[in-house]
Design a binder for these strands. Structure first.
Length: 201
DNA sequence: GCAGTGATCATA
DNA sequence: ATGATCACTGCC
């Protein structure tokens, strides 16, 4: 049977996210990216897919934890550009950080991918997927070889934990804002436990 | 707990 | 040119 006949308005799984998805406030994008898929094409043409489970939002020039808050530099210039492009930079001399630029052009905002698939931690995501400076400034697209897809699943609100961002203690009050989004790994067992309880002793 | 690692940026 | 900084990780 044809999908178009059964569910005409349903986005197909594995559809790349459009630029309009990223052209929104970074915290919205960070939240909605949970459960989406980060897809990367290897040199041999093979594509691997990794479900995003942890993100952080960097909101703009007023956000003291955001690179853009210190003005435009060569490193962060892509953050000031249009949404939907990768912002990749090296941290501590060895870890590439993968961000997707969000919101209006001129506003330095982005979302950091901190966890996807089997990779826990932003540096491990990029190492695991072979991501480096080469993607900086590229659009998130199949053509570029690195993109996001709608996995056809929405992560329910109750499974999303919000915490302060990691490693931004220098940012004063902005360090405390709950702009890190994590799919709660402890929640599925809880659901199972509740169902078991409901079934009765 | 803290060393490793090197691009980037401000200061000069 | 030089030194401080850093959206982290891995091993003590």
């Amino acid at each position: 049977m044809r999908e178009s006949t059964i569910m005409p308005d349903m986005p197909r799984p594995s559809q790349p996210l459009a630029v309009s998805f990223f052209d929104r406030p970074a915290d919205r994008v960070a939240r909605d990216l949970l459960g989406c898929v980060l897809a990367v094409r290897a040199a041999d043409g093979g594509v691997t897919r990794h479900v995003v489970f942890e993100t952080e939002a960097y909101l703009g020039a007023h956000d003291l934890a955001c690179h853009g808050s210190k003005g435009m530099t060569r490193r962060n210039a892509v953050m000031f550009g249009p949404a939907g492009r990768w912002y990749v930079y090296l941290c501590y001399g060895m870890h590439w950080m993968l961000n997707i630029v969000t919101g209006d052009e001129g506003v330095p905002a982005a979302v950091l991918v901190r966890g996807a698939g089997a990779f826990v931690g932003p540096g491990r995501v990029t190492r695991g997927l072979g991501i480096d400076k080469a993607f900086d400034g590229e659009p998130a697209s199949r053509r570029a070889g690195l993109w996001f897809e709608n996995a056809g699943i929405a992560v329910p609100r109750r499974l999303v934990e919000r915490t302060p961002r990691i490693g931004v203690g220098y940012a004063g009050a902005w360090a405390e804002k709950p702009l890190r989004f994590v799919v709660d790994p402890a929640e599925p067992p809880t659901i199972r436990a509740k169902r078991a309880r409901r079934r009765g002793p």
